[in-house]
């Protein structure tokens, strides 16, 4: 094609409240640029094709698989990763309950579980066990059998009442 312009451009993306500018290529996924260009390695890569939920982030508050979002699709959006949920000194209630209920084993699925649960509670502060199971059905865990994860989410919703 004649008059080709150079590949890629700088995108403005807000991550955990901070406005970032990052140079991206049009074929890159959001997962890739989060991990490899913006040092957000708390966002994990699992299957890379939307089947496990380990790479889940919130985009404008909605839980999505970052492996299936193109970097360019994240421009001007607000991205929340688990780092944006709380800090060691100031844990998010979900993080606190995940620890207290023993919902964490290897930890790999947990960032995704926490973010999906956060989005759920923002929409439905008093979910039933069924609601929680359905909301988390896109986040696979090979260690825990899910029981403690669900208990942790329930505990946070009980606190809220």
């Amino acid at each position: 094609m004649k008059g080709q312009k150079p590949l890629g451009r700088e995108l403005a993306i807000e991550i955990n409240g901070a406005k970032e500018k990052v140079f991206c290529l049009p074929g890159e996924t959001l997962l890739h640029i989060l991990r490899n260009k913006l040092d957000h390695t708390e966002v994990k890569e699992g299957c890379g094709k939307g089947d496990c939920g380990v790479c889940t982030i919130l985009m404008n508050g909605i839980a999505v698989n970052s492996c299936l979002v193109m970097a360019y699709q994240a421009e001007d959006k607000q991205i929340t990763t688990v780092r944006g949920m709380g800090t060691k000194k100031n844990l998010h209630p979900l993080q606190k309950q995940f620890i207290e209920k023993g919902a964490v084993q290897c930890g790999f699925c947990i960032p995704g579980q926490l973010l999906t649960a956060k989005a759920l509670l923002e929409k439905n502060p008093s979910p039933s066990t069924e609601n929680i199971q359905r909301a988390l059905s896109g986040n696979l865990c090979r260690c825990t059998g899910y029981k403690k994860i669900i208990e942790a989410v329930k505990a946070v919703s009980a606190e809220h009442k």
Partner: peptide
């Protein structure tokens, strides 16, 4: 279809 994250997109 799929799971919640897929359905959101």
């Amino acid at each position: 279809v799929g799971g919640p994250q897929i359905r959101n997109r």
